[in-house]
Amino acid sequence: MEQLILASGACDPAADIICKPENVNELFEFTHPLFSIGPFDFTRTVFLTFLAMVIVLAFLYFGLRKTRVVPSRFGVLVESAVGFVRDDIAKGVIGPEGGRYVPYLLAMFLFLLVANLFEVTPGINFPITSRMAIPVFLSLLTWVIFVVVGFFKNGFRYVLDIIWPKSVPIGLRWLVGIIELVSTFLLRPLTLAVRLFANMVAGHLMLTLLLVSGWVFMSSVGDIGARSIIGLPWFVFGLGIYLFEIVVAVLQAYIFTLLSAVYIQSSVHPEH
């Protein structure tokens, strides 16, 4: 709703062919806190973050509150989500040692799933992962985990193997080593966070621009007459993107979790 107002405020359906805000940041930043505790601003994004947490906890609670031999239909859903993360992601990627990382990966997957699906939830329509905070925090956490595990499992050899890879011809070793060093310790966390962030920003932008443009043009039919037909393709295109974004929201939560597992795996078994 607020995006609608933001975008249409700078939109003149009689002159433009699509509505876009003056500044894209306005679609993502809620600078007007509901209340503040010292420097902590309780904005809409903060509220939605806690809402996502409550939804995840409720999902787990209602799916698992009873130890039941024959689970309910909702219980089957929760159990299959847990089983998916545990068996396919944690144990499938990391191996038998993956069981230790299941709580982290499961919490991450469920939190990101709900946060991403906020993008297409009517009434919310805002993915909190399109703010940099959650992607950065989770990717840094993954970074810390895989670096600590790497040192813990392999000692100093962990870094040595990265900057001086034995499997590469000696002439190229230093070059591959530098690339690997940058890739492992800089690009991994960066791309992990930015991938999620960029997908959500792009999806939110597309949805907002297309659906708001469609709505603004078609609702101002009294002022601009036949020109309001411009809104129709925007609206139809927007609905198509809407369906696509449901898939993207789930897929990005999966890929973020999968890549975290892969990075942890590369520290547990560095030779691969």
Binding site: D88, G92, V93, L187, L190, T191, V194, R195, A198, L251, Y254, I255, L258, L259, V262
Partner: peptide
């Protein structure tokens, strides 16, 4: 199943350059 997982991983790694461009 394994091919699909590997495909997603490959996409994710290939995507890195586009993401750097995005940043």
């Amino acid at each position: 199943g394994q091919s699909r997982t590997t495909m997603f991983l490959g996409i994710a790694f290939t995507e890195a350059l586009a993401l750097i461009g995005f940043v």
